[in-house]
């Protein structure tokens, strides 16, 4: 990485410039259904505000790990995976350096401040994302962020751009390699994103909004998305969510099973020693302590991530159904108005 930003204040907000946002959207949208990543360039400005002014895509790795779309195989041996990723990243790394060198020549902000990725229906609590973000926060700057764009949810007429970073607690936990419990909420920290633009761009946007460059506002050259929100069909979205919830809950259960299994084996080990009394208790506690610290112990983080993800899904469902109720009652109101009108007109005639 070219530059390391001095970490004086932690990031509390992210200002995303329109150009960067559009670049992210374009890349993620055009490469569907593949999930893609890219790099963010920008500057740390005062008050813990991170300004992202430019973004560029990473080339697609030779074998696109499709697992990322829904979830990375938690059961897989993680070491094998990281080695694979490293091989792909090397190419990407060179690309990144080259690109930044080129962009520097045309005076683009030359600080890498994080990375972006497309996400699928809000799936972000994966091990791979965590590892990647950890690498950024550890190697690049503690203020590195990841911006996630969700093409699926955006199709409903609502722009979904989220920005996350790992909490210090999570970083500490990962870097010390401890197997402790932290609150699932405290793994990722969402950073509020604002879209902002420099003056010239705002002038242009005004022009566009006023219909100076063709009747952009009134008639869609591409597609008018204002009415996407009025889509009453809720089922596909909810079905997808329920499906995901099911599979993630299954994963959670599998994780739990692993834990139970491990605890039982630990207990067996201690029981076999056949000790009695108070000493035994202490021994047991020590053995358990030791057992959890061992490398082959199941990682708590996995299940924590899963529960965090499930919670995200639940929140999304809640938000969506909230909107759904509104639309449904709106339709009902419209329909009854119409019925009444028809009824009154027939009665008068």
């Amino acid at each position: 990485m070219a530059a390391i930003i001095e970490a004086d204040a932690p990031v509390t907000s992210v200002k995303l410039e329109g150009l960067a946002a559009l670049k992210i959207i374009k890349h993620c949208q055009e490469s569907l259904p593949t999930m893609v990543t890219g790099s963010l360039l920008g500057l740390m400005i005062e008050d813990g505000c991170l300004e992202i002014t430019h973004a560029f895509p990473f080339p697609e790795p030779p074998d696109d790990n499709k697992g990322d779309i829904i979830k990375t195989g938690h059961e897989e041996d993680f070491n094998a995976k990281t080695i694979d990723d490293e091989a792909a990243a090397l190419d990407g790394h060179e690309f990144q350096l080259e690109m930044m060198k080129m962009l520097r020549e045309v005076n683009v902000d030359n600080n890498c401040v994080g990375w972006y990725q497309s996400m699928y229906l809000g799936t972000h609590s994966t091990m791979s994302l965590l590892e990647n973000q950890l690498a950024y926060q550890a190697d690049l700057s503690p203020n590195a962020v990841v911006v996630l764009y969700d093409p699926m949810q955006t199709a409903h007429g609502q722009l979904v751009l989220k920005c996350y970073r790992l909490t210090d607690e999570a970083v500490r936990l990962r870097s010390t390699g401890k197997n402790n419990f932290i609150k699932p909420n405290n793994i990722f920290q969402e950073v509020p994103v604002t879209l902002s633009n420099p003056g010239l761009v705002r002038a242009l946007l005004r022009d566009i909004g006023d219909g100076m460059h063709g009747s952009y506002g009134a008639k869609a050259n591409g597609a008018d998305t204002t009415f996407d929100r009025l889509d009453l069909s809720t089922n596909p979205y909810l079905e997808k969510h329920l499906e995901f919830l099911c599979s993630w809950v299954d994963d959670l259960a599998a994780e739990q099973y692993k834990f139970q299994h491990y605890t039982r084996s630990l207990r067996n080990n201690v029981d076999n020693r056949n000790a009695k009394g108070r000493k035994a208790k202490e021994e047991l506690a020590a053995a358990i302590e030791e057992g959890w610290a061992r490398n082959d112990a199941p990682r708590r983080l996995e299940s924590l991530l899963i529960s965090n993800q499930i919670k995200t899904y639940c929140d999304q469902v809640e938000k969506f159904t909230g909107g759904g109720f509104g639309k449904l009652y709106l339709t009902k109101g419209l329909h009854y108005e119409e019925e009444k009108k028809v009824a009154s007109s027939t009665s008068t005639s």
Partner: peptide
């Protein structure tokens, strides 16, 4: 479609100097 959503969002907030939440 998605670009448009983003642009519409930005047009709506173009009067505001500090930008608007995404």
């Amino acid at each position: 479609e998605s670009e448009r959503i983003c642009v519409d969002r930005m047009i709506a907030s173009s009067a505001d100097k500090d930008g608007a939440p995404a």
